[in-house]
Computed example of a mutant assay.
Amino acid sequence: MIAFDARHIFDASRQGIAYEAIRPLNLYDSPALNALATQAQAGRQLRFQSVGAAEEGVALPMVLCEDDYPGWMGRSDLAALQPATAAYVPSSLSLAEIQARIPLAIAFARAAMAQPNCYLWGGTLGPNYDCSGLVQHAFSTQGIWLPRDAYQQEAFVERIENPGDRPEALVDVLELGDLIFFGTPLKATHVAIYLGGGDYIHSSGKDRGRNGIGIDSLVDLKETVSQNYYAQIRGAGRVVRSYAPRSLS
């Protein structure tokens, strides 16, 4: 077992040494470890993020290598880390390869919907997901990495121009697996995967959604949830590449 003393953490942080999770891990949005930010499945790589904060306290600042996502990990989870067995190599999938894998990513999301689940802020591993966690995990099962949060995913994908003046006009240009973004004029706060025929699959919260994974529509607005999200549509984008970490670019 690694002796994760302050000196080891200092050196690992400075040298950018990567570690591998040997079991699922939770990462939080602050050193208080109260609010979940994201989760890491076994096999994902992490690095210590900063030196000063790493030397004291019950929480450690980490960054996930595959998507550059930061978070705080409890010191009690250090036993779940081992030195990475190999350097992380970003996916080099072509556009044709990505398009060929999208139906399998959608199949994963549908299978996740079929399991008992509820909305979990910060959930990326299942059975409970938040919106962008479901999208990221579904695509990552096919070797396609996307950034973690909805607004990051919106900035990463190739923007699809709406040919009309109403959100439902997107149906004329959307393709299977495109991402639909919702939120305010300033920022995307929600994301879904397009299924065709005006339908999309997403994990939505309790207040305005389904408290879990469900299918809603851009055009059939009989359901209250579809109405709620229709009013928040910002636009859509197409996944044309897989994310490459900044540390490797």
Rank of each mutant, 00 (worst) to 15 (best):
P116N: 12
S91M: 05
Y229Q: 00
L125C: 12
V171C: 14
R166Y: 09
I98H: 03
L179P: 00
V51W: 07
A79D: 15
Y88P: 00
P127H: 08
D149L: 15
L46G: 04
P167D: 00
A42I: 10
G74N: 07
V219Y: 04
T124G: 14
S249Y: 09
P31E: 04
E223W: 07
C65F: 09
F139A: 01
I17R: 12
L186M: 10
L146N: 02
A6L: 04
L170I: 08
S247N: 09
S76W: 10
V58I: 13
S94M: 05
W145M: 15
G43T: 08
G237Y: 06
A32P: 01
A100T: 03
L125P: 01
Q142P: 02
Q41W: 08
I106S: 01
D67C: 13
K187P: 00
A54F: 03
L104N: 13
A236S: 08
W145H: 11
G214E: 12
E97A: 15
S92L: 11
A3C: 10
N162I: 09
G57L: 08
A236Q: 02
H190T: 03
P24W: 05
L221D: 05
L174G: 00
L95F: 14
A105F: 00
L64V: 14
I180C: 04
L218A: 03
L248Y: 12
P163M: 09
G143I: 04
Q45I: 04
V89W: 06
G43L: 11
S226D: 04
P116S: 11
P116H: 11
Q232V: 10
E223S: 14
P61L: 12
I22C: 11
M73N: 00
G164C: 10
I160D: 00
E168F: 06
L95P: 02
L64D: 10
G197E: 03
S249Q: 14
R75S: 07
G71A: 05
E168P: 00
F108C: 02
R14E: 11
Y230Q: 07
A155R: 14
W121D: 11
E168K: 02
P70H: 08
D220R: 14
A32Y: 09
Q153P: 02
A54K: 04
N228M: 11
H190N: 05
L81E: 08
N228K: 06
Y129Q: 05
A109T: 01
I144Y: 02
E168Y: 05
K206N: 13
P147L: 12
W121V: 12
V225L: 08
S242I: 06
Y19C: 02
I201L: 07
G122W: 11
G235W: 13
G205A: 09
R208M: 13
R101K: 13
S132H: 04
A21M: 05
W121P: 03
E20D: 10
I201G: 00
Y200V: 03
G74S: 14
R148E: 03
A59D: 01
A79N: 11
I102E: 04
L64G: 07
G214N: 09
L95G: 03
Y243G: 04
A87H: 10
E66Y: 06
I2L: 15
R7Q: 14
